[in-house]
């Protein structure tokens, strides 16, 4: 086990030799499994989503987490916010954590927007009075109008993300995780999100920002970590990191500066 006392008082996130495997199940039912066994095929296989990942983040640092689809970014964020535990290694964090993972919030599809705001806020550690106090501001930011009283299962993906982001930014957190938040949502909302995250950053909170949009990472982050097939491929200054991710892509086309910033974040 890693000793928390071994780190400085301003350490915000510690990821120490962390690995996470997933089991890939090819066959799920008894019948399929029986057939597979008779034919001598594999029933399941393990897949290493994160492999010996280590880094530490200081309070107030803003990290751009980059890498191709499937490189383990969302998995890493799930370990940092405590949804999952690593198979080996240690994750340590300091203070409250809020944010969005894999674009969506943890909302219950059958509950209305209003109910979900309360539930989500409670899970993130907000008290009832605190939620009541911030409720109007949350709703205003999400800007979902009359849909507040309909089940979130009926929301468009943009509305869903907006409400989730609105709750997350209202939590008085010390660490903020933003996983492809800009991938859904329209242009005005993206701009609003960027402003908000800039605020979060300036308030001295630790920010982990996952994005494919180089421009926004450049604007938002002090450091870039690049994941490659579950391993840390690069950890260092922003510009160098961005160059590192793009090494095998055709060079950046600076046709639309804003698009680069706001991200055609897929």
């Amino acid at each position: 086990m890693t000793d928390p006392a071994a780190y400085d008082a301003d350490t915000s996130i510690v990821v120490d030799h962390v690995s996470k495997d997933f089991t890939l199940r090819y066959h799920r039912t008894a019948k399929q499994m029986a057939v597979a066994m008779v034919k001598g095929r594999d029933i399941s296989d393990t897949f290493s989503a994160l492999d010996d990942v280590s880094f530490t983040v200081k309070q107030g640092e803003s990290i751009g987490l980059m890498g191709l689809n499937g490189s383990g970014k969302s998995t890493l964020l799930k370990l940092i916010n405590g949804v999952m535990k690593p198979d080996s290694g240690t994750v340590l964090t300091r203070g409250r954590i809020a944010g969005l993972i894999a674009t969506g919030a943890g909302f219950h599809p059958q509950l209305t927007g209003r109910e979900n705001v309360y539930l989500n806020a409670a899970i993130l550690g907000m008290t009832e009075p605190e939620t009541q106090r911030k409720f109007d501001s949350i709703v205003e930011f999400a800007d979902i109008g009359r849909f507040l009283e309909t089940p979130v299962g009926n929301y468009s993906s943009g509305m869903f993300a907006r409400l989730g982001f609105a709750v997350a930014i209202h939590v008085d957190s010390d660490i903020f995780l933003a996983d492809e938040v800009l991938a859904v949502g329209d242009r005005p909302f993206k701009r609003k999100c960027m402003e908000k995250m800039q605020e979060i950053r300036e308030s001295g909170r630790t920010l982990v920002y996952v994005s494919h949009a180089a421009g926004s990472v450049r604007k938002m982050c002090d450091r870039v970590i690049v994941l490659e097939k579950g391993r840390v491929g690069f950890d260092g200054p922003v510009d160098e990191g961005i160059r590192y991710v793009k090494y095998d892509e055709d060079s950046t086309k600076p046709e639309d500066q804003e698009d680069d910033e706001l991200g055609s974040d897929v």
Binding site: P4, Y7, D10, T11, S12, V14, Q59, G60, L79, I80, N81, G82, V83, M84, K85, T90, V91, L92, T93, R94, G95, R96, I97, D174, R201, E202, S203, G204, R205
Partner: peptide
Amino acid sequence: GRHRVVDAPLAPPA
């Protein structure tokens, strides 16, 4: 002014 002191222990998040 980006300095923020967090008065909490470093602990596993789960």
